[in-house]
Design a binder for these strands. Structure first.
Length: 423
RNA sequence: GGAGAGAUGGCCGAGUAGGUCGAAGGCGCUCGCCUGCUAAGCGAGUAUACUGGGAAACCGGUAUCGAGGGUUCGAAUCCCUCUCUCUCCGCCA
């Protein structure tokens, strides 16, 4: 959610910034509703002040029969107030829906561009594997090794689910442990294990609702949502709280499964593990002082990169352009890992700063010092990493001519010393 | 699933035959005084949001006693619905 006072005073500037996201985001309704809302508020509150002072007088009088006229008058005033308040409620709802559906303003350092084609390569790491054979896609490798079973998962549930088996299941578990251990012991994050279902208020706090309900799995009774990312429950840990400045920055890491409808992506990535309805992810979430958020984004991105470096997987860092960043984000770096079978880089982590956009929605604040008014913190998060896609990258990058997989050295302690996955 | 109890400010905790209660008191915290140091003591202050005025300091209005609705001139106090917490019973990983 944007700052209403800021938009009120800088409507053109805000509109211009939003225009760089593409689409037609008009703020014309904002001014109208804002004015209407405030004028109703003034009328209603003036009457309420009148009513309050009259009530006080009535209270002082012992013999109520002497204030009959006043009581009758106030009855009318109350009815008028009700009228204004009903109208105000309607306007407020409209106004808040409008505010909730306006995306964040891109950060000045976010490159301007229309689509993902205009994202900017910031840096690359590692050298691409040289294979003296045709690299196989991960689904063929996994099927030959009998470590992933898509067909049976489809039988159990449906399309876009996967059953991991044997060394595959263990490798996934190893990756999760490795990532969590790295972030908690080397990068200063606190591990949390949150609920995988959240309520509507939490989804609204981080920006998935009200606009993106069709992307979510929803339970009907009670109405809960399966989390599409740990960002949701973890950022909401501090919803409606005033944090101590000395507590900042707060850094959490969490492994959770993530659930996504993937509506509207029916044709894409239908084979393999790239796009699933359920996948594991280790998430990094930070609550920081507003002055630190850009520096913290660089740090957080570095923490995600470290995972790829230790796994010796080649990747590149992309700065997403204004047309490609997410709804709540003001700046985003994507990490893209090399996939030999596709001869391209694919997203494996997305690291974003949100400014005070989420904090304002979710009411997450801090005080600069004891006496000052609460201010909104800045929030950030990033994948560190998407586990399923990491598994894909390992299978594809570490494959051998005979179809076996050499396990990255850092994972071997988590695999009981196993060095290679073979038939 | 059944029975019962509860939800008040940073925390604890008063407040139900509706009226001067944004809310006693205590703790904590901040500032000042006192004290050789520490402890103790004394005094003052200490919620949030929206909104009007002001360059600002600040001043005014409104709302908020879990959430929403109702009764009333007036509700923390009465009525209804919902949410959450706790206790006991049942069931269960």
């Amino acid at each position: 959610m944007l700052d209403t006072k800021f938009i009120r005073d800088n409507l053109d500037q805000a509109e211009a910034a939003l225009a760089t996201r593409g689409g037609n985001i008009s703020l014309s309704g904002f001014r109208e509703l804002d004015i209407k809302r405030r004028s109703l508020l003034t009328e209603s509150e003036t009457l309420k002040a009148l009513k309050n002072s009259a009530s006080e007088e009535i209270a002082k009088v012992k013999d109520k029969s002497t204030v009959k006229d006043k009581i009758a008058e106030m009855k009318e005033v109350s009815a008028k107030i009700k009228g204004f308040d009903d109208e105000l409620k309607t306007v407020d709802e409209e106004f808040s829906i409008l505010l909730m559906t306006i995306p964040n303003l891109p950060h000045p350092t976010t490159p301007v561009g229309k689509s993902e084609d205009e994202n900017v390569v910031v840096r690359s790491w590692g050298s691409l594997p040289k294979m003296a054979f045709e690299p196989k896609p991960h689904w063929d490798l996994a099927e030959d090794l009998d470590i992933l079973d898509f067909e049976r998962a489809a039988k159990i549930t449906g399309a876009r689910f996967c059953l991991s088996k044997g060394a595959g299941a263990r490798l996934e578990r190893a990756l999760i442990s490795f990532m969590l251990d790295l972030h908690t012991t080397q990068h200063g994050y606190t591990e949390v294990l949150p609920p995988f279902m959240v309520n509507r208020a939490s989804m609204t706090g981080t920006g998935q609702l009200p606009k993106f309900e069709e992307d979510l799995f929803r339970l009907v009774d009670p109405e809960y949502f399966l989390i599409p990312t740990a960002e949701v429950p973890v950022t909401n840990i501090h919803r409606d709280e005033i944090l101590k400045k000395t507590d900042l920055p707060i850094s959490y890491t969490a492994h959770t499964p993530c659930f996504r409808r993937e509506a509207g992506s029916y044709g894409k990535d239908t084979r393999g593990l790239i796009r699933q309805h359920q996948f594991n992810k280790v998430e990094l979430v930070k609550f920081v002082h507003p002055d630190e958020s850009q520096a913290e984004l660089e740090k957080l991105t570095g923490h995600a990169e470290k995972v790829l470096q230790l796994l010796e997987l080649p990747y590149r860092v992309m700065a997403l352009c204004s047309g490609d960043i997410g709804f709540s984000a003001c700046k985003t770096y994507d990490l893209e890992v090399w996939l030999p079978s596709q001869n391209t880089y694919r997203e494996i982590s997305s690291c974003s700063s949100f400014g005070d956009f989420q904090a304002r929605r979710a009411g997450i604040r801090f005080r600069e010092d004891e006496k000052s008014k609460p201010e909104f913190v800045h929030t950030l998060n990033g994948s560190g990493l998407a586990v399923g896609r990491t598994l894909v990258a390992i299978l594809e990058n570490c494959q051998q001519a005979d179809g076996s997989i050499v396990i990255p050295a850092v994972l071997r302690p988590y695999m009981g010393g196993m060095e290679k996955i073979t038939k």
